[in-house]
Computed example of a mutant assay.
Amino acid sequence: MLTNQLGIFNRVISKNSSALFKQSGNKIFQRLNSTKVNESFSWQEYFKLKKQKNFINFGASSITGLGGVLITLGAIANIEFDEKPMFGFDPVIVLSTTVILGGGIGYLFGPTFGSSLFKLSNRRILHQFNKRDQQFLARIKDKRVDPSSQSFSNPVPDYYGEKIYSLNDYKQWLRDCNAFRRKAKEFL
């Protein structure tokens, strides 16, 4: 009789716990869906985030470049050198070139860390930012000029649209592209 009561008790607990788990799982799912940002992600917000991303990447590049210089200097500090040439050059020139190369390599690693930091800080709207970025790059690709007719007096305006940080910049870029096309047509 006791085992029969324990069996009933176990069945009641398992039914209630699965129902409770389903309810709490639905609440968590609803909470995740309710954190969606407004579907209207304007171009001004996109350009603001694009500028922020470039600023973060530049800052991260500066920090990693300085880190590369410091690491290289730390490694060079342990080297004993005489007045003998290194690789056929003066040792001061070789060591200073090594420090500069270490800083340059560190600078190149900056955007990797900067992009990760940007993604972490803006993960709520990152999906919308990426959609706008694809739209922006498609517009740039459609509207940009053919660089085969460039010259010193008629340079190509910002081929990849890297300097566009506002709608006014975009409009100016379009005007520059039209002026380039007109000059290329008139002078060729």
Rank of each mutant, 00 (worst) to 15 (best):
N178H: 02
W43P: 09
V145R: 01
R182P: 00
E83T: 14
N178G: 00
F58M: 12
I13K: 08
L167C: 09
D176T: 07
T112W: 11
I164Y: 03
N16K: 13
I125G: 04
A184P: 12
D82G: 14
M86G: 01
F58S: 11
S116C: 10
A138K: 13
S24C: 06
I125A: 04
R123E: 08
K185V: 06
L174Y: 01
K27L: 08
K48E: 06
R11D: 05
W173T: 13
V69I: 15
S24W: 07
F81H: 14
Q30T: 13
M1Q: 06
K143T: 05
I79G: 02
L101V: 15
N38F: 03
V92F: 12
K119E: 06
Y159N: 01
K141W: 04
T98M: 15
L66N: 03
G7F: 07
L174I: 15
Y165G: 10
N78C: 09
K51W: 02
A77I: 07
K36R: 14
L32M: 12
F21S: 10
G67C: 15
Y170A: 08
S115V: 11
G106R: 04
I164T: 08
S24H: 08
N154P: 02
P91W: 09
V69T: 13
D169P: 11
G88D: 03
T112E: 01
G59H: 02
L20W: 10
F47N: 06
E80C: 00
G114A: 13
G106W: 01
G161E: 00
G110Y: 09
D169I: 10
N4Q: 04
F81P: 02
R139F: 07
S42C: 03
S17M: 10
L20Q: 12
Y160E: 11
K163P: 02
I76D: 04
F55V: 14
T35C: 06
V145E: 02
I8M: 08
Y160I: 08
V12Y: 08
N10T: 09
V94Q: 09
L117E: 00
A138L: 06
V145I: 12
D146G: 05
L126H: 15
E162L: 13
S166F: 00
V94R: 08
G114M: 13
L6Q: 03
R144L: 08
I71Y: 08
N130V: 13
F136C: 09
L73W: 10
Q135F: 09
A138M: 04
F113I: 15
R144T: 15
G102K: 11
L2P: 08
P111N: 04
Q30V: 12
S148R: 14
G103V: 11
K48I: 05
F113K: 11
T3Y: 01
F58H: 07
K53D: 03
I79T: 10
K185C: 03
I13G: 00
L49E: 03
I100H: 04
L137P: 01
P155F: 02
Y159S: 01
S62T: 15
G114R: 10
G68A: 12
D169W: 05
A60C: 15
R11G: 01
K51Y: 06
I28A: 09
K141Y: 07
A184G: 08
F136D: 01
Q172Y: 00
N78K: 14
